[in-house]
Every structure is written in C-alpha cells, then in structure tokens.
Computed example of a mutant assay.
Amino acid sequence: MRRALKISLVTATSAALTLGAAACGGKKADDAGAGGDGKQTLKVGLAFDIGGRGDQSFNDSAAAGLDRVKKDLNITTEEISAKPDEPDADKESRLRLLANKKYNPVIGVGFAYTNAINKVAKDFPDTKFLVVDADQCKVEGANVMGACFSEEQGSFLVGAAAALKSKTGTIGFIGGVNVPLIHKFQAGYEAGAKHARPDIKVLPAKYLTQPPNFDGFKNPALGNEAAKGQLDAGADVIYHAAGGAGIGVIKTAGAAKKWAVGVDSDQYNQPAVAEAKDYILTSMLKRVDVAVFDFVSAVSKDTFQGGTKKYDLTNDGVGYALSGNKVDDIKAKLDGYKAEIVSGKIQVPTKP
C-alpha cells in the first residue's frame, strides 16, 4: 500500500514542500543530514496530534518547543499533521517516513502515538523516539522516551482559582474526549476547587465526544454548545481540556462575560480568542514545549536515556498562567497550594 503524505518542512526560511512516500517503509532515503566531514547531523521530525500546529493549545505547545529547537540549537525540523480518526497504521506510516528520511530524533505528539512508536522504534534501533503523553506513562525499547505530565496537579491550581473567583458559587468542566488522560484534568480541577472552597458547586463534567470519535479535541462548535449548557446551569467559571474545541468554550464564556480557564498553552494571547481575552482567568500550563526541547537537547548532547520522564509541579512541568493579571490577588494562595503539593502534604487525585 502506498500513501501520499503532505508534509510541511520547517526551516529557517519557513519553506514548505510536499513529499510522497511509501506508507510501510522500506525505501531508503539519501543520506541527507550528513555533514561535510561525513558525520551525521541532527534533523528532527515531529508528527502532530489531531489539530496540528495552530490548535492554540496542546499541539501549539509542542510547536513552540520545535521552534525553540530550530532557533536555539540550529537544528533542521520537519513536521507532519495527523488526520481525524485515523488508524494506528497511518501513524506508523508517518513515523516510518521520517525515520526512513534519516530524521533522528523523531517525536510523536499525543498518547495515540504510543503503540505506533513502540512498534516502529524496534525497526529503527539507531533512531531516538519521543512520545509526548505516553499512554499510561509506559514505553518500550532503549531508544524510546515517554514524556508524562501530572495534569492533575496543574488542574488543581486552576480549580482553586476558579472556586476563589466564582461569584455564583458554581463552576464547570468540559473535557474534549472521554478518555483516562482527560479524567486527570477533571479530577485535579474538582479537587482544587473543593480544597480552596468546600462549599463550591462543581457541575457534572461534560465530555464532548466518546472514543473513537475525537472531534471533541478539534470542533469549536461542540465546545460552544457545551459551554452554553454550563452557563445556563449557573457556572460563571468554566475550565476546558478540549484542545481546539476549547476555543468555542472560551469564546462562549467570554461573550457571556464569564470566566474561562484555558489549557496546555497560555491562551490569553492566542489570536483565535482575542475577543474573549479579558475573560480568560488563567490557563493550566502543560509544558510540552519543554519536554520537546529537553529531549532533542539530550539527543544532541548524547545524554539521551530511554524510559519515561515526569513533568509536574516539582520541575515546573505543569503550572498556571499569570497573563492578564486576573489571579494576582490570589497568587499567594495558589503558590501556597503548589508548595503543599510539592511537599506531599496535598495528594492530588488522578481520577474523578
């Protein structure tokens, strides 16, 4: 089987090109990337999750890390976007394409890449792989690293902020797709809200889609409708963990002059929600950009080690945004909660 994959080549001049490649590998690429002295130079290949660059959330955080790699490490990068509801075979094809083109290291963004990377990495033992959000924080092979995040810890802090800022005493949570990963966001948010304000009412969580339908991570219209429902139920703060679909949540909350809480990236300055920025209370930061940069940097320094690496509040792998100064008045309380989580005094649940 052959499949044409369209890829954007990111270079210092932001040039783009389209490549056709065999889906199942086997075609050996030219030794592109070999320096004039014959030594291999790094070229980083990155495969995005659904939504790709421009989702102004999860993927854009990965993109920021890739951009930093290009700028700070002066390394060529190439990126490919995923298609909605695609099978694992397509993800494997994308990864094989990059590995066959001598891109090393190779990055898969999103837990859905875990199985594909574990499989492809066995066929390319000299290529280093990273899976962001490794499923269940598990990977296979000495040439594979999994970046895992304590989303529940960052969500605890924005849940506390939501509760402390709510005037109606009612807040809401909207998840993109009903999967265990997003349950961590919900669990932390609810726990943080209750810890900061025991009398707070947290509406039943709303999930936009059920797997295998992943539109809940990319369709803003779904976020819009869900936000309307929670606003009608009295919520004046809504936290979304819905990727691109969360743009609809933010816009709808902002139009109603109610608070929205962003996710993954600092969404305060995102162009897609410019009209609602005054109503973005904060964002739960998930430093995918740091994980991407750390991984490539380790490969470039020859200090790479397979296995998993956790990003949490102890290493600022998660956190909350201060843009807009909307939480300045409660920052001391939030930082106090952070210190208690880091010390172990507060144990944050991972399941609702």
Rank of each mutant, 00 (worst) to 15 (best):
A221S: 14
A221D: 11
L222Y: 11
L222R: 15
L222P: 12
L222C: 14
G223K: 03
G223P: 13
G223D: 10
N224R: 15
N224C: 04
N224Q: 11
N224E: 09
E225F: 09
A226S: 06
A226H: 05
A227R: 12
A227H: 13
A227K: 15
A227N: 05
A227S: 09
A227Y: 14
A227Q: 07
K228D: 00
K228E: 02
K228Y: 00
K228N: 03
K228P: 01
G229Y: 02
G229D: 04
G229R: 01
Q230M: 12
Q230F: 06
Q230R: 09
L231T: 01
L231Y: 00
L231F: 05
D232N: 09
D232A: 10
A233T: 03
G234P: 11
G234W: 12
G234K: 15
G234N: 07
A235D: 02
A235T: 10
D236N: 05
D236Y: 04
V237Q: 08
V237A: 11
V237H: 09
V237M: 08
V237Y: 06
V237G: 03
V237P: 01
V237W: 11
V237F: 13
I238C: 04
Y239H: 07
Y239I: 06
H240L: 12
H240A: 12
A241P: 09
A241G: 11
A241D: 08
A241M: 06
A241S: 07
A242M: 01
A242F: 13
A242P: 12
A242V: 05
G243Q: 12
G243W: 15
G243S: 09
G243T: 08
G244H: 02
A245P: 15
A245S: 15
G246D: 10
G246Q: 14
G246P: 10
G246T: 10
I247L: 02
I247R: 08
G248M: 15
V249F: 00
I250T: 11
I250Q: 12
K251R: 13
K251D: 07
K251W: 07
K251M: 13
K251L: 15
T252I: 12
T252W: 12
T252P: 09
T252A: 11
T252C: 13
T252M: 07
A253I: 03
A253R: 02
G254F: 09
G254E: 06
G254I: 08
G254K: 15
A255T: 13
A255K: 15
A255N: 13
K257A: 10
K257C: 05
K257L: 02
K257Y: 10
K257R: 14
K257H: 12
K258I: 04
K258S: 02
W259A: 00
W259V: 05
A260M: 05
A260R: 05
A260Y: 14
A260K: 13
V261A: 06
V261S: 08
V261N: 06
G262F: 06
G262W: 10
G262P: 09
